[in-house]
Computed example of a mutant assay.
Amino acid sequence: MDQPTPPTDARTAAVAGLGPDTQEFLKALGSPTRQRIMMLFAQGAELSVGQVAEHVSISQATASQQLTLLRRGRVVTSRREGKTVYYRADRDGALAALAELQSYLTTCC
């Protein structure tokens, strides 16, 4: 009797589901507020929490929470300069999550 062929890496990923980093990436994209924040970082912009809050018309506490979720989802990255934290787009993180998502969708759909 023929043995079934073992699944490829892409099929294994599809069966196992998306990895936690890609799941966090998708969660980060799920909010209209976070989507507006993401657009602030176009073309290499680097902004502090206060600047993000001002541009999106939200409180600094809300901006900080939203940026934390975006950082967890590898949409943005941060660096500290003194007491100020600056955020910018995390291109490598986003591309990695998109590559996994593409592989998953190609296999499952």
Rank of each mutant, 00 (worst) to 15 (best):
M1F: 07
T5H: 06
P7L: 10
T8P: 14
T8H: 12
D9Y: 03
T12N: 13
A14P: 02
G19M: 13
P20L: 03
P20E: 12
D21T: 07
Q23S: 02
E24P: 01
F25W: 10
A28C: 03
S31F: 11
T33A: 09
T33P: 00
Q35L: 10
R36F: 10
R36D: 10
I37F: 07
M38V: 09
M38H: 04
L40E: 11
L40D: 03
A42G: 06
Q43L: 10
Q43F: 09
G44R: 05
A45N: 10
L47P: 01
S48N: 06
S48C: 09
V52Y: 00
V52M: 01
V52P: 03
V52L: 02
V52I: 01
A53C: 03
E54K: 05
V56Q: 01
S57T: 12
S57C: 13
S57M: 08
I58V: 09
S59I: 00
T62G: 02
T62K: 02
A63F: 09
A63T: 00
A63H: 06
Q66M: 12
Q66A: 12
L67H: 05
L69Q: 12
L70R: 06
R71Q: 14
G73A: 06
R74L: 13
V75G: 07
V76H: 07
T77E: 13
R80I: 04
E81R: 15
E81P: 04
E81H: 13
V85A: 01
Y86P: 02
Y87V: 00
A89Y: 07
R91G: 10
A94H: 03
A96M: 06
A96T: 02
A97R: 04
A97D: 10
L98K: 10
A99F: 07
E100K: 10
L101I: 10
Q102M: 09
Q102W: 09
Q102N: 11
S103M: 08
S103Q: 14
Y104K: 14
Y104M: 15
C108L: 15
